[in-house]
Design a protein around this nucleic acid. Structure first.
Length: 277
DNA sequence: AACCTTCGCAACCGCAAGGAT
DNA sequence: CATCCTTGCGGTTGCGAAGGT
């Protein structure tokens, strides 16, 4: 299994690694250690780019990597970590030192995600799949918004989890973080009162945010209704998040071990919620 | 046996952060 | 302060294997 071998315009080899190339890379790193990935291939006698060598080493050759089938315990750990960290594979891999982020990501995408869906669990929120009441015109509804008359309520736990997902969803898309955060934090009252959220982007595309799709045009600014953009958090704005910000205490105690930007962002969103209330 | 579809996984690509100059 | 370079990350792709028809 593997990709066809080919050479790019700079004469660098691409595609599947041979056993001989592996041996050369391992021999070089064993003797000289890790260092300048850019210079390494030439010094090691490899016709590869540094990026390719780094990837091969980190995902395949470095010592201590566990390969093969994931155990049920590992799968459970991944699901648990994903519910907290979202698609932050590197962060998840740090909690599972013998597995690479690539391996975890592949296993999630090819197996665990589907398994959750089959079990009626939304792999994004890790909540049981329920229909969200559509409040917008049907022509603009997101493909993930299933119009239904089923009511949708939040427990404190689900509030914390969903807001956690919101923060994770935003932070995992670095290019969107500032935009979304700025809008939310700069004019929150207006955004909520008008039931609209302004999003700017350089791309002309549909972007998925927290499981919902928003349209982004090429003049940097586009608007979309808040409930379309953040369907579940929108309900939180209208209920738990908006009126009962005490639920954040739960989140913070659940999430005390997180020390990175995600927590900062979450606290900012929390502060935003308090301002609103 | 031939063809088609799905699965699993290695590897690539583009982007962003952060350090060096 | 601006620019360049390196590193790291997450999303996506390509392809052989396996399974189904």
């Amino acid at each position: 299994m593997g990709r066809t071998t080919w050479f790019d315009e700079d004469g660098l080899k691409k595609g599947e690694w041979t056993a001989e190339e592996d041996r050369m890379l391992v021999a070089y790193i064993s003797e000289y250690g890790l260092g300048d990935w850019r210079a390494m291939p030439k010094r090691a006698g490899l016709q590869r780019c540094g990026k390719s060598c780094r990837l091969r080493w980190l995902n395949y050759l470095r010592p201590g990597i566990k390969r093969g089938k994931f155990t049920p315990q590992e799968e459970e750990d991944i699901i648990k970590l994903h519910s907290v960290l979202g698609n932050r594979w590197a962060a998840i891999a740090k909690q599972m030192p013998n597995r690479t982020d690539n391996d975890i990501k592949n296993h999630w995408n090819s197996c665990l995600k589907k398994r959750l869906v089959r079990s009626g669990i939304d792999p994004m929120t890790h909540e049981p799949v329920v229909s969200v009441k559509a409040t917008n015109s049907p022509t603009t509804s997101s493909p993930l918004l299933t119009p239904s008359s089923t009511s949708f309520s939040f427990s404190p736990t689900s509030s914390a989890r969903l807001l956690n997902r919101l923060a994770a969803g935003i932070s995992s898309r670095k290019h969107g973080l500032d935009r979304i955060k700025n809008v939310i934090l700069s004019e929150p009252r207006q955004a909520v009162e008008e039931n609209k959220l302004m999003i700017s982007s350089k791309e002309d595309e549909e972007e998925e945010v927290n499981g919902c799709f928003m349209e982004i045009d090429d003049n940097l600014i586009s608007t979309t209704s808040l409930d379309e953009l953040l369907c579940e958090p929108y309900d939180l704005y209208q209920s738990d998040f908006y009126h009962e910000t005490g639920h954040y205490d739960l989140y913070q105690s659940d999430f005390y071990h997180e020390t990175d930007d995600q927590l900062d962002l979450f606290l900012e969103i929390h502060s935003f919620g308090q301002d609103l209330s």
